[in-house]
Write a protein that binds this DNA or RNA. Structure first.
Lengths: 216, 216
DNA sequence: TGAATAATGTTACTACCATTCACATGGGTA
DNA sequence: TACCCATGTGAATGGTAGTAACATTATTCA
């Protein structure tokens, strides 16, 4: 059996009408599958169309070009990301500190469980302001971080309270550094004698200690 | 004037013999120029050959494929990187703490001043153990970080001394996170109200505080 | 010195890709 | 019902990675 497809059939050879019905969505899903396998730069637009069973020209009715598809995926990724972080934060329950650590862990969990989104978000070399949706979704995700920081430092005396924006950026970069370098099983740049989760938890604890927010 | 080149001429139209003389090196340099302009995924192998003025098939005598060229560049990048970090560390002079902060700043400076190498090293999606040279050069760079950590925590009492490997990983990921997200002027994922250098210095100071290594 | 040989570059080719254009289809609406 | 327009098709353009057979030059060694 050859793997080639005829137009008018999807990847399983099922027939469909001349019109797909929900091509934009199908393209996004197929692209996610491919990104998970070979990274955001490792697959072709044409491959996506074959997976979906349409002609190579079809996507252009829905996305200006290959990058527009990537931006759509990244934008959706940031939405899911914000959602995952917010869920981990859980309004600071049961207590601010452990909820805070959960947010950091959720960052790693997202990188691990949604490598395709993560790659589209951070490794697709999208021009930053690529899309309004992308920018907004990014800010939503960052907002969760910022909110968690605000809650956590609320109790600190005025003189010892760090700017929450800076703190949020620190947490973001610590999480992101670990996720980028060690977060996805195979692509790690170096073997480490602990899990990324442990590494991040220790990093955040030491950092919070430095801010005078230690547990004990 | 068309920009097209004939074989046997380099980018300035100078003649050369049938043999280039130092093609491998010229390819690396031309690739670095292109990476600086358009990123590691944004240029074609063929473009490199045109810049150098050889036929599209010529590079294959020196590099197995496009990825092999990227690996060579990344490997050389890690060499320069290790050198830059070591120079910043300067054997812990004038004192361990300020030398340590210099190492962190050197990380950012490298990302800023050598975006092409940085991109090849961290954003080219090279399979990690791609080359023996690449692995070794990576370890050399990390070794400088580790050495600096060792020196810095030497004075701490046994019970309070963190594993230097973990500490080195933390410094690496903090630096890398900032460099990735904010380190190169245009590609920043979000505007921030301070320089990446300030952000990193604050992050490292807070972290060291948390370890009980504060200045005062 | 003068082959023989190895190294390095070229041309020509295959197979694939992104994107565009003119055209085909058929769902939705007046 | 008839038309329009969103959506999909096929074919064409011009680009890319990589390979193979051939050309040229550098190197070796008899």
């Amino acid at each position: 059996m050859s793997a080639s497809k005829r137009a008018g059939e999807n990847r399983d050879g099922e027939k469909r009408g001349y019109h797909h019905g929900n091509l934009a969505e199908a393209l996004v899903q197929a692209a996610l599958d491919l990104i998970a396998k070979v990274g955001p730069a490792g697959f072709s637009f044409a491959e996506v169309t074959r997976a979906v069973g349409v002609s190579p020209a079809a996507p252009y009715r829905h996305f200006k070009d290959r990058e527009a598809l990537m931006a759509a995926i990244a934008s959706r990724g940031f939405d899911k990301f914000a959602e995952a972080l917010a869920k981990a934060w859980k309004d600071g329950k049961p207590d601010a500190l452990s909820a805070f650590k959960n947010v950091g862990q959720a960052y790693l969990a997202f990188a691990r469980k949604e490598p395709a989104y993560f790659a589209a978000m951070f490794e697709a070399r999208l021009s930053p302001g690529s899309t309004r949706e992308l920018t907004q979704a990014t800010e939503r995700a960052f907002g969760v971080l910022r909110q968690a920081c605000d809650a956590l430092i609320e109790g600190l005396p005025d003189g010892k309270r760090p700017p929450s924006l800076m703190m949020a950026l620190h947490v973001w970069t610590m999480s992101h550094g670990i996720a980028s370098l060690f977060g996805r099983g195979d692509a790690a740049r170096r073997a480490i004698p602990m899990t990324p989760e442990e590494l991040l938890e220790a990093n955040i604890l030491i950092y919070l200690d430095g801010l005078g927010l230690s547990d004990n």
